[in-house]
Computed example of a mutant assay.
Amino acid sequence: MWHCSEDGRFSVKSAYNLITVEQMRDTASSSNVGVPFDWKMVWNVEVPQKIKMLAWRGVRDVVASHGNLARRGVTLELTCPMKIPRENLREWCSSVWKFVKDLNWWSLFWSIAWGVWLRRNGWTFDRKRMVGTDVIRKAVSIVGKFELAKEVRNTNPHAMLFETRWKPPLAGVIKLNSDAALLSPNEVGFGGAMRDYVGDVVVATCFRMEGGFDVDIAEALAMRHALSITMEAGFLRLCLETNCLKLHSHLKKGYVTPTPFGRIVSDILTLSRLCHFCSSSFVKRDGNRVAHGLAKACNQFSNLRVWLEECPSDVMELVLADLSHNDA
Rank of each mutant, 00 (worst) to 15 (best):
M1V: 09
S5C: 00
S5K: 07
D7Q: 07
G8Q: 06
V12A: 09
N17D: 02
L18H: 02
L18P: 02
I19D: 07
T20N: 11
Q23K: 13
Q23I: 12
R25T: 04
A28T: 06
G34H: 12
G34L: 04
P36A: 07
F37I: 00
W39C: 01
W43K: 14
Q49N: 10
Q49S: 08
M53F: 15
L54T: 06
L54G: 08
L54P: 05
L54S: 09
R57P: 01
V62G: 12
H66E: 08
H66G: 06
N68H: 08
A70M: 01
R72E: 05
T75A: 11
T75F: 10
L76Y: 11
L76K: 09
P81V: 00
M82Q: 11
E87M: 06
N88P: 04
S95C: 04
F99S: 09
K101C: 12
D102K: 03
L103R: 06
L103Q: 08
S107M: 05
W110L: 03
W114H: 13
L118H: 14
R119L: 02
N121Q: 07
N121D: 05
G122E: 01
G122L: 05
R129A: 10
R129Y: 15
V131L: 12
G132R: 02
G132V: 00
D134N: 13
I136F: 15
I136W: 15
R137F: 02
K138V: 04
G144F: 06
K145L: 14
E147A: 07
A149P: 03
R153E: 02
M160S: 03
T164Q: 05
T164M: 04
R165E: 12
P169W: 05
P169R: 11
L170Q: 09
V173K: 10
L176R: 03
A180H: 13
A180G: 12
A181I: 08
N186C: 01
N186P: 00
N186S: 06
E187Y: 05
E187W: 03
V188G: 03
G191E: 04
A193L: 13
V198Y: 12
G199S: 05
V201F: 08
T205W: 01
T205S: 13
F207V: 00
L221H: 13
S228W: 14
M231A: 07
E232L: 10
R237K: 09
E241Y: 04
N243D: 13
L247D: 02
H250R: 13
L251W: 15
G254M: 10
T259C: 11
F261S: 10
R263G: 07
V265Y: 12
T270L: 14
T270D: 11
R273C: 06
R273A: 14
S280E: 10
S281P: 02
S281M: 01
V283S: 08
K284L: 06
R285H: 07
R285P: 00
V290E: 00
A291D: 07
G293P: 03
A295P: 09
C298T: 15
N299W: 10
N303S: 14
V306S: 11
W307L: 01
E309D: 03
S313G: 02
S313E: 11
D314M: 09
E317I: 05
V319R: 09
A321P: 03
L323H: 13
S324G: 05
N326L: 11
D327M: 12
A328K: 13
